[in-house]
Design a protein around this nucleic acid. Sequence first.
DNA 1: ATAAGATACTTTAATATTAAACTATTATAT
DNA 2: ATATAATAGTTTAATATTAAAGTATCTTAT
Lengths: 150, 150
Amino acid sequence: MGSHYNGESEQQRALDCFIKLLRATESVNTEVHKSVFAEGLSESQFGILEALLHLGTLNQNQIAKKLLKSGGNITLVIDNLVKQGLVSKEKRSEDRRFYWIDLTDKGRRLIEHLFPRHAENITKRMAVLSPEEQILLGKLCRKLGKNNKQ
Amino acid sequence: MGSHYNGESEQQRALDCFIKLLRATESVNTEVHKSVFAEGLSESQFGILEALLHLGTLNQNQIAKKLLKSGGNITLVIDNLVKQGLVSKEKRSEDRRFYWIDLTDKGRRLIEHLFPRHAENITKRMAVLSPEEQILLGKLCRKLGKNNKQ
DNA sequence: ATAAGATACTTTAATATTAAACTATTATAT
DNA sequence: ATATAATAGTTTAATATTAAAGTATCTTAT
């Protein structure tokens, strides 16, 4: 059992864990968003409406950072939400570089209707794991998610 | 501490675990594919080359199922790989509904060069977790990934 | 005061992704 | 035999996504 064997075994374990992580996340995420898709919203559109509901008025830069997406992407998704009458986009006099994005009444009604159902979907799906397992999974993900390159 | 409180607490735990899972997966996946992007390949293109390397000649339907993507998507990504001269696409006489996809010499050289580096990247990144933690994470993901709707 | 740099957003070009409607080919039921 | 169904792949229209190059606005250094 030399170092070569151990190296291969370590790699096998890492690849196996990695692929399971990808597949599980993909599966849960797709299933959880079904009720969102059924309402004609994309995952990105829903993400922006949700951020506006919980954080209030935001500019596009804040939204891009919150959702970890590029600025160009946010421009497009916001414009599609504006076309659907779900959010408003306006420049204010303070600093004319910013656009301020907010929910319209229609957008607020929609996300207030959708979010509780979404949270329930997540809760039901995660209930495959016990409370302790969920806490453990969260801790492992937090450790893994930390970007510790030196 | 009535059932309402417990319901909220259960939901909080589930949402917290869910968001950590999404973020960690996104972070690891993006970082791990950096050397792939640096070679001018997309994640999907790399996925197809990898499948062909490990499984041999496949038709588009098999590739779609393996990568959990739609048929239309596979048509496009394969055509882009054909344009780059990395895979071949041919109909055979047996059943003329199928296109058979295989690595070209150029494609094989590329993926044989890239895959070991990719596996190393995954191994390095997953090494944030101990071997035991990786095994545990894999088990939790496997349990979670199972689509048990009744 | 003004030039240089930073910040916010847009546009473009390329790839990805899906659903739905489509064509072509093969299998099956009568 | 032939109509019907199933299977493999394509096309289209819509949305997403990024990087890179561009515009507009504000801040800072001199």
